[in-house]
Design a protein around this nucleic acid. Structure first.
Lengths: 225, 225, 225, 225
DNA sequence: CATGAATGAGTCTTCATTCAT
DNA sequence: TATGAATGAAGACTCATTCAT
């Protein structure tokens, strides 16, 4: 859609992402493993370029340099290979920096660092994030999967907030779970606006603004500054 | 996706939502007008039930009780009828309550009222909002269209913030545009989490929490409290 | 057919059963011989379970515990391994009881014994008989092959009938060849009804009834009864 | 199979014949009805020529002179159109002669007439009968369907036999149901041998022989002849 | 204006068979 | 011999769109 008439949109309803699909075993031989890897990488390229819906299996196999039929040696459906791509990207997202927010910092610095890290990661994976958004809007199973993962992230944030409340740093009358959820949502949404919708803020501006809003929202006392 | 496995690929050459489509004139005869109305209503039902992608034109015409061929008397494509549905729903969203602009209230009350109004509207149109989300994730033109509309909303909010800053009610060091954008995004995201993803917060809880976060974020001084 | 809807078309270029296929030599090494045997046994299991059409070569090699490619070391096609299975089963069908040709008996007893032997054999190989029926209905060459084999069986029966006529035991006005053919057909059909279609007669009932019909049909005089 | 290598054999497993398929309504418009009829007739030609398995939907639509996609306007699968062909042929088989065996005749004449009628009908529909045999050997649902229909035929014959026994015309020690089943089977098998396998008997010979065997088998007394 | 049958481009999917290791 | 990954020909099926009535 949206594009030149010769790029036809294609859509499928099918296997679903989570519930039904039993991820099949990795191939045993090195050659098989190599081909599978080629496929997943090709799929990522094609998905990020064309979106999930417009991506045809042929495009993926062509990009991978293998025959169309070979696809089914490794995956049963577009959904299944998407899951594989997702797994790959998640791995990649976690590895580089161990995401350990240095604990010695003051609360606002920690928030700032977390916000910056999030935005930078989002930027780096912006094409994939758009893809993620699309798939989530299409597939309920996947939406649920994603919600659950987000939840644990929110939990951690809520715990921090609770800690700050006990330390007398954050406002006591704030519901930690909802605040964590809403403020995380705010940052996520801002990243989406910037890197998917194309708003023209700089990352620095965003970090400053988001951090201030976040800190204010929690009524964090910045003791000596 | 996520649904019956026996269904299969859907193809089409997209007409696009905004750029290309010239919304055609309304039919002149009363009969034609009636048929068009039936079609738009049917389309809304089908879109909200099946999503944009899985909705087939046949489903729409069947739901409308007219023949498949008649569709093209009124619309050129699925995208075009979707636009018509969108227009219809927007009208419906604005009409009922004239968006009570109770100006006499204090800032926090106004924010609270706006938040509540937004959430209630979102709830009432939640099926449509999910649909909107899907179409936005699929179609770039539509995404852009939506962003622009959101912008004017954000502008208005930014103006309010600027006003409050001049009145000394809100923190002066805050960037009004970004704050407006991010805080609106927070509320929108919360509504999505609640009414599309199915989080189990009550609306009252949400209004309280969002309003407090919003007011704090702007460092709004509540004079007599 | 009649089975899972998600399975789909099977294609192949037929090798044919009889005419074309030159049964290749048995492998020379003991290891090769063992593999071939495993394949034939596996093929029988799969054929009897899934039918000729739905049996995939992969199923057969998997059942045999060997790799897909190895199939072609021993056979050129599904038809060819089917022929091998057929040969194996025929051997098995003949060996066990040396087809007791109790010549001393009176005609009716002989007929009874033959009928019982036939039914019992059919029962023991019922799964294979169903398979045979399927392949015959699919492949003309095989149908012809089968017809020829049946002919010699009918010839033998015709000879018996002719003998009985000369002995004055059977009606003289009966055409021995046709009678032999039709009555054998009757028994074969009865067996098919019982063991493939699932009619619920006991074997004893069937033997009694078939024997009486057969003896009556030939107007066999039962001397001392 | 069995044929020249360029005629490829194709096989499907799918919808099944009876249980699952809900025969859809006949088209309402004359045009639609005409097309459906063309399709069914084309299907019969193709099925009888190529067999059920080798018949491709394209062959059928081509023979009918319509586009491939139009097939699905009327049928969901090859099985479904086969059922339609079956219905058509059955209608045709019953109409011509009202199959009323003149009741005034003596038993043997009646049997002779019935046998002749059966053989002539089989001959006329021999191509279809071979097809029927094939489908029955492939699809269990259809096999069961066919068995049930045969049963009522056998029931009627059994009733005749019982009547003859009461009239003292047929041997009293014969089981009517089994006799009816086995003797009908004999005739059916003979017809198959002649018209499908290609035995070279004349119909007259067959009628004579089958009638004699049948009458003898039931020990029918031919009073004054 | 309405109808609904007809079209055909486009994609998926299977599996016998080949072949490099 | 054995392996199992790679191939590619073949057909089924969908549905937006057209068009004769």
């Amino acid at each position: 859609m949206s594009s030149t008439p010769e790029s036809a949109a294609r859509h499928r309803r099918s296997a679903g992402f989570s519930g039904t699909s039993t991820p099949r075993d990795l191939p045993t031989t090195p050659r098989g493993l190599r081909t599978r890897t080629k496929l997943v990488e090709a799929a990522r390229v094609v998905f990020e370029r064309d979106g999930f819906l417009d991506a045809r299996l042929v495009d993926i196999t062509t990009e991978a340099g293998i025959s169309a039929g070979s696809f089914y040696t490794y995956f049963d459906s577009k959904e299944e290979i998407f899951s594989a791509v997702l797994a790959e990207v998640e791995e990649e997202m976690l590895h580089p920096d161990v995401r350990q927010v240095t604990n010695g910092d003051d609360p606002v610095s920690m928030i700032r660092k977390a916000n910056r890290a999030y935005l930078e990661s989002y930027q780096r994976f912006s094409k994939f994030m758009r893809l993620l958004e699309q798939v989530a809007s299409i597939d309920e199973d996947f939406r649920e999967l994603r919600r659950k993962r987000g939840e644990s992230f929110v939990q951690r944030n809520a715990k921090s907030i609770r800690q700050m409340q006990q330390d007398g740093v954050a406002g006591a009358d704030i519901d930690p779970m909802m605040a964590a959820s809403f403020l995380s949502g705010m940052v996520a949404r801002a990243a989406y606006s910037r890197f998917v919708l194309g708003e023209s803020w700089t990352i620095d501006e965003m970090v400053d603004s988001l951090t201030e809003l976040w800190a204010n929202a929690l009524k964090i006392e910045t003791p000596a500054s």
